[in-house]
Design a protein around this nucleic acid. Structure first.
Length: 752
DNA sequence: CCGGTTACATTTTTT
DNA sequence: ATGTAACCGG
């Protein structure tokens, strides 16, 4: 096993008399430089959006090395994503001109894997463990629920998984859980189920992602001598995106930092947007209490956006109470104001964005620098349609990643069974893929036996094949499958793994299954499988590859050509574009209703941070849009503009609304501006060609000698053109020319 | 057991 | 609209 203490940390060549150069500091501003040079004691670097955070991190790490404060093996640098880890590795490697292989530079999870692979046996973990993905976790929980005759409809395994994950995020092993959180799940059984889940995983020699950190904590707290080794080793600790750490990760860091106390956390409380997966903003807010004597350094000079963009964003985020507070500034004061535009519905919104993109295209902007950032995934659809008709190339980021695709997981499941015969979850996944005539009934018998005999499925089958428990119809294919696996396993001993996979996919009939498939997706799946085989050649061992597969995400495949990028706001964190479109700024969508329901004020603040993240992605232009009506799946919703729109500092915003329903009416002309209010809004004569609608009418301009009189032609954004039938006391009766409005706008109350 | 049909849900997502 | 999971009849 790769012992972490045998790693390349030989000293730098003895430094001659001359002190090491510090040219790398010259290009930094004062704050950045301070953040790089303050290497003793706890340091919190509050790095606002676009303030050069990554640069500070990498320079700091390099600085410690170059100045000879520590050897590479004595620095721990932690990130959240593999992408961030990779970027840091590359940049540091370049700065110090060395190979960084074997350095302690990676994600929380990857580093924990490394620790557990070395010392896991101290707490009874077989160090050849494999890591479960979400699919497996759900499948396992479902089994557990079924066995206890718990209705998986009333108590979805997914919900249980969430509860368990939150516990793990907080560093709680089953015995430590005392909370009320899961109490309502299956009549308070959640804790027992959690225990059962852990037992099952242990018996299969698998861990889930949460376990990686959790077990590390158990290891450290239960074995001070091991902890001590790591504590002494890591003279300097660097943490990226500290605002995203959960409690378990915080505890992990605190334990490791105890000896040398040189821990530097970089983060931005205003960009904490992952509380729903366990991140605790509190960690960063409490830093000075947690690490007494801490130095706090603020990076507030923004190198990314124009003054107006920053100004609007600052106005917005200032509405949050739970923040440490910082004010971004820039030397690039002017620029374009943030455009706020109202649209009638999602389609119009998409149309407006499309038009704007075409305009931008004629200017110096390239499509690769344009992004559409949405709150929820479904919002991309209308934009897709629009851009497609316009012939504007686009790509959608997010969705399924390579290794999450069904065919890849299936193939990997085959490999897992070869590699770890005890991996029952993987076996179950592929036992009837392709169809082998092994169905529910058969699996039921096998499961039952396996459980009672406390054996993995495969072993259970081996036994059962000798008996008459199983029908011959099931016995035959099962026997054949086991033989196949024995053969493939033998092959894996000698052949290289890419060849093994190729053979497996071929002989199992899995590939053939897709070849026969006439659905349009099938060819793509075959392509993906081929790609997988190619990828496999690049790994030394199946083991390495399996780890890679469960740990590493396939990053956005090389983006051929200039394309408009579409993704969720969450996906956009850390990225930047010249132009950013932010559609769907409507109450209940953004801020999302569920977020408010679940977390109340905190939820609102997190949504606001999300809005802040969105605006600050833009270098030059930000557009915010909101639609009065939106189709959400099958339903129409009528919407008020998001409160966030009003929270942007006004002097940095340009409202470009058409005269009409919403916001400030600029321009105007002949058409009347109508404002609906809930209670007084009603339909008449339904289903006829003409609709009569009563609405509250207000003049567009407050100089209100403007009046509507009978017979006047008016325009209403929802119902189109109509003629005033009579007007009295601000209420208009209008006959609209077109029929076909689908839904009454209830709950539509404008604030005074 | 299989394949077709219906019912159902649908914020955000990394490791 | 869309995908998945449960369901049912052959």
């Amino acid at each position: 096993m790769n012992d972490p203490f045998e790693l390349s940390d030989e000293p730098e060549e003895a430094t001659p008399s001359a002190p090491p150069p510090t040219v790398y500091l010259d290009s930094l501003n004062n704050d950045q430089r301070q953040a790089v040079e303050a290497i003793e004691g706890p340091v919190l670097v509050l790095a606002g959006a676009g303030t050069g955070k990554t640069r500070v991190l990498t320079t700091r790490l390099s600085h410690i090395l170059i100045q000879g404060h520590a050897y590479p093996g004595e620095i721990l640098a932690v990130t959240f994503t593999n992408k961030a880890a990779k970027e840091m590795q590359e940049r540091v490697a370049q700065m110090v001109d060395r190979n960084v292989d074997g350095w302690w530079l990676g994600t929380f999870h990857a580093l924990c894997v490394r620790i557990l692979r070395s010392h896991g046996n101290a707490i009874g973990i077989d160090t050849r463990f494999t890591i479960l993905d979400t699919d497996d976790q759900i499948r396992l929980l479902k089994q557990i629920l079924r066995e206890r005759d718990i209705d998986t409809k009333a108590w979805p395994p997914r919900a249980l998984l969430n509860i368990i994950q939150r516990w793990k995020d907080r560093g709680l092993v089953p015995d430590k859980v005392v909370g009320q959180d899961g109490e309502d799940f299956a009549d308070g059984l959640a804790i027992k189920l959690y225990k059962e889940y852990q037992t099952r995983m242990a018996s299969q020699n698998t861990l889930d992602f949460g376990d990686l950190i959790l077990h590390c904590l158990t290891l450290f707290t239960g074995h001070p001598e091991i902890l001590k080794v790591y504590q002494e080793r890591f003279r300097y600790i660097l943490v990226d995106e500290y605002q995203d750490t959960n409690v378990a990760q915080y505890l992990w860091l605190r334990l490791l930092a105890q000896k040398h106390r040189n821990i530097c956390c970089v983060g931005d409380d205003d960009q904490s947007i992952y509380s729903w997966r366990g991140a605790e903003v509190g960690n960063i807010l409490r830093f000075e209490e947690d690490f007494p004597g801490a130095t706090v350094i603020r990076l507030e000079r923004n190198y990314r956006s124009t003054g107006h963009i920053l100004g609007a964003a600052s106005g917005l985020i200032a509405h949050n109470e739970g923040r440490l507070g910082k004010t971004l500034w820039t030397k690039d004061p002017g620029g374009d104001k943030v455009v706020v535009q109202a649209a009638w519905d999602g389609q119009e919104e998409a149309r407006l964005v499309g038009e704007e993109i075409e305009v931008l295209q004629t200017k110096e902007y390239s499509l690769g620098e344009v992004a559409i950032l949405v709150r929820t995934g479904f919002q991309t659809r209308e934009f897709e349609e629009r851009l497609m008709t316009l012939g504007v190339p686009y790509r959608i980021i997010g969705g399924l990643r390579f290794y999450e695709r069904k065919e890849i997981r299936d193939a990997v499941a085959y490999l897992r069974v070869i590699f770890q015969p005890g991996d029952s979850l993987a076996f179950e996944r592929i036992v009837n893929l392709p169809k082998r005539g092994i169905g529910q009934a058969t699996m039921q018998i096998i499961h039952q036996f396996a459980r009672s005999a406390d054996k993995p499925l495969i072993e259970a089958i081996e036994v059962l094949l000798e008996t008459d428990e199983l029908k011959p119809r099931a016995k035959k294919p099962l026997g054949a499958l086991l033989e196949d696996f024995t053969r493939w396993r033998a092959m894996a001993e000698v052949e290289n793994h890419a060849d093994v996979l190729e053979t497996v996919l071929d002989e199992s009939g899995y590939l053939e299954m897709w070849r026969m498939d006439r659905t349009p997706e099938a060819p793509g799946k075959i392509e993906n499988l081929k790609e997988l085989i190619t990828a496999l050649t690049e790994f030394d061992s199946l083991e390495d590859f399996l780890e890679h597969v469960s740990l590493v995400m396939e990053n956005e495949r090389a983006s051929e050509g200039e394309k408009v990028t579409m993704m969720t706001l969450h996906g956009a964190k850390g990225l930047e574009f010249d132009v950013v479109f932010l559609p769907g700024w409507e109450e209940k969508l953004f801020p999302h209703q569920l977020s408010l329901d679940e977390k109340g004020r905190d939820g609102l603040e997190e949504e606001r941070r999300l809005a802040y993240v969105g605006i600050t992605r833009a270098r030059k232009k930000s557009y915010i849009l909101h639609a009065a009506n939106r189709r959400v799946y099958n339903e129409w919703r009528s919407n008020l503009p998001s409160r966030f729109v009003d929270e942007l500092s006004e002097e940095h915003v340009l409202k470009r609304n058409k005269p009409g329903l919403y916001g400030n009416n600029q321009g105007g002309g002949q058409s009347a501006s109508l404002r609906e209010t809930g209670p007084s809004f009603s339909y008449g004569s339904y289903g006829r060609k003409e609709k009569t609608v009563t609405v509250n009418a207000e003049p567009s301009f407050s100089t209100s000698d403007e009046k509507y009189s009978a017979g006047q032609r008016v325009f209403h954004q929802k119902f189109g053109y109509g003629r005033v039938l009579n007007s009295d006391g601000g209420k208009l009766q209008i006959a609209f020319e077109k029929a076909g409005v689908k839904k009454v706008m209830e709950n539509f109350v404008e604030e005074a």
